[in-house]
Design a binder for these strands. Structure first.
Length: 272
DNA sequence: AACCAGGGTGATG
DNA sequence: CATCACCATGGT
């Protein structure tokens, strides 16, 4: 068990159930305890007072989860900077100040958001979890499976993917895996290079357009200026922040987008 | 039954 | 560059 002083701006449901990652859920025994998997590891975690308790070794705490939950970043400062941009954005941020941008694995984020296109979040969760259950490797000591790597996926056929029922997205998944495995797209180089490089590269994949690329870059490559525009965000921007464009939000536009996205989904009555 | 969902593609103005 | 039918699937 590893415990860390929880940052002021960190809320588990706000961060783990806001549509950026699809494998986290409350445990059946205790709705305050969350479980999920990333980087080939299973984890349960919960808040106890002002401590964050993670059921993991100190090595995994320092080597994986501290980065995954972006614990070194000062979200209070960023929230303050974003709040200065617009009163509406300030209100959205105050509604869910505990949202953080997770540092997911590049391939998992890319592949997950390929599956996300023209789907609702609950079905995306089902698809991603079935994908892992069918093709992911066993994580020792649990019944959870890791997200299948690009090599595993590239070896699959459309027939293999048929029981997943991912519809017309199946060939997109295979194309992404093949381009990664063959080195046509270098995920680690996208991490290093400026955002524009990643935008160009990811869109070489069939089924990856502006929105999916933006999500992958933000959640999987931690390109924090990315600002995914889905159907919800288009409605929200027109209604709440007319006249503002993604570039207006600066280097942390991605967090602003999460504030607005979350706020909009929790206030559907604003869009009748 | 028609419409929608964290869209993209390809064809056509 | 803007629009638009179409795409597979499951939920309302």
């Amino acid at each position: 068990m590893s415990g860390v002083q929880i940052p002021a701006e960190f809320d588990l449901p706000q961060t783990l159930d806001c549509g950026q990652a699809f494998r986290w859920r409350p445990t059946p025994e205790d709705s305050e305890t969350w479980c999920g998997a990333a980087y080939g590891r299973y984890l349960t975690l919960r808040r106890v007072g002002n401590q964050l308790e993670l059921d993991c070794s100190q090595g995994d705490m320092d080597g994986v989860w501290r980065a995954y939950f972006d614990l070194s970043e000062d979200y209070a400062r960023i929230r303050g900077e974003l709040s200065d941009l617009s009163p509406v954005l300030k209100e959205a941020a105050e509604f869910a100040p505990g949202i953080r941008i997770l540092r997911q694995e590049p391939w998992e984020a890319l592949c997950s958001f390929i599956m996300s296109q023209n789907n609702n979040i609950s079905r995306i969760k089902g698809l991603v979890n079935n994908f892992c259950r069918m093709f992911g490797g066993k994580i020792p000591g649990t019944d959870m499976r890791s997200f299948p790597g690009p090599e595993t996926v590239a070896a699959l056929s459309l027939e293999d993917l048929e029981p997943l029922r991912s519809g017309y997205r199946a060939p997109y998944i295979l194309d992404a895996a093949r381009k990664v495995v063959e080195g046509e797209i270098d995920l680690q180089r996208i991490v290093r290079e400026p955002t524009g490089y990643g935008r160009e590269e990811l869109r070489k994949i069939k089924g990856v357009g502006p929105k999916v690329a933006e999500c992958a870059l933000l959640y999987g490559f931690h390109k924090t200026e990315c600002f995914p525009m889905d159907v919800w965000m288009k409605r929200a921007m027109a209604q709440l922040l007319p006249g503002m464009a993604p570039e207006d939000f600066g280097p942390n536009a991605g967090l602003a987008q999460q504030y607005i996205f979350h706020y909009s989904r929790r206030h559907p009555e604003l869009f009748l």
